[in-house]
Amino acid sequence: MMQERMGTICLLVAGCSTLLLISVLLFMVLESWPVWSAVSPLAFILGTDWNPLAEPLQLGIGTMILSTLWTALGALLLAVPLGLCCAIFLAEFAPQWMANILRPVLNLLTGIPSVVYGFLGATVLVKFFEINFAMASGESLFCASLVLTIMVLPYIISTSESALRAIPPEYRQVSLALGVSKPYLTLRVLLPLAKRGLLGAIILSFGRAAGETMAVLMLAGNTMVLPTSWFSKGEPLPALIALELGTSEVGSLHYQGLFAAGLVLLLFVLGMNLLLALFRRDRRSGVS
């Protein structure tokens, strides 16, 4: 009897994972509920003062959102050109033995934990900035971006490589038959064809970079001043949550404010992922 029902049981379990995801969202909304009545959502997101212990308390995460955007977008700015070059190299140009070395390298790079990236960034990069640019302390959003770049590179590369490989071989054959050089073929024919997949890779890594905690916590400097440039210090959202959750009193507006910040981050990343899912579905229907 049990054996026939296996499919149903598996479906139920799989359904529970969806419920879990929804419950995460609901829980965050529930825990942060009082904040939204105390502070209007717009003021919460755009406000630049975070002082949950002051009287009257100020809850605005604008500075943190700006820091998050600086670090994540900065990381993309560096990682996208580099990652695309690597993906093109792996998909089109690398000889077999080279590809056989690089693919495991990508896997190992994802296997190194973020705290180690953060630690190395803080001891090597930050020191480097302090010594060479005579800065009092070398932490900056730029440092965080640099380390995030290395962290998101493997994701960009493997996703864009599979997008490039999914292009039917006819395009390559026709272009080569027309006497076009291989770099030209890659840049003018293959890249535009893989546009959707490449955009998907960028969205994926943007979500990753925005949600990364340890590296930004150790590198961004953790000051609550509105960041004015890529080289100023800041405190991205995940760092704020990680730093203050332990000290906030359960049930206080401070605690609920952190959940509200988590909710903003969650909605942002979920939005990115749903966008990605939409992209993938479109691509599939476009092929069939």
Binding site: G15, T18, L21, V24, G211, T213, A242, G262, L270, A277
Partner: peptide, 22 residues
């Protein structure tokens, strides 16, 4: 379900922590 799994994989680890803390 596929989308759910993908979203869970993309969940920032600090949000997972926040949820489990609460």
């Amino acid at each position: 379900i596929n989308t759910t799994v993908q979203c869970m994989a993309g969940l920032p680890s600090i949000v997972t922590g926040l949820f489990c803390y609460a």
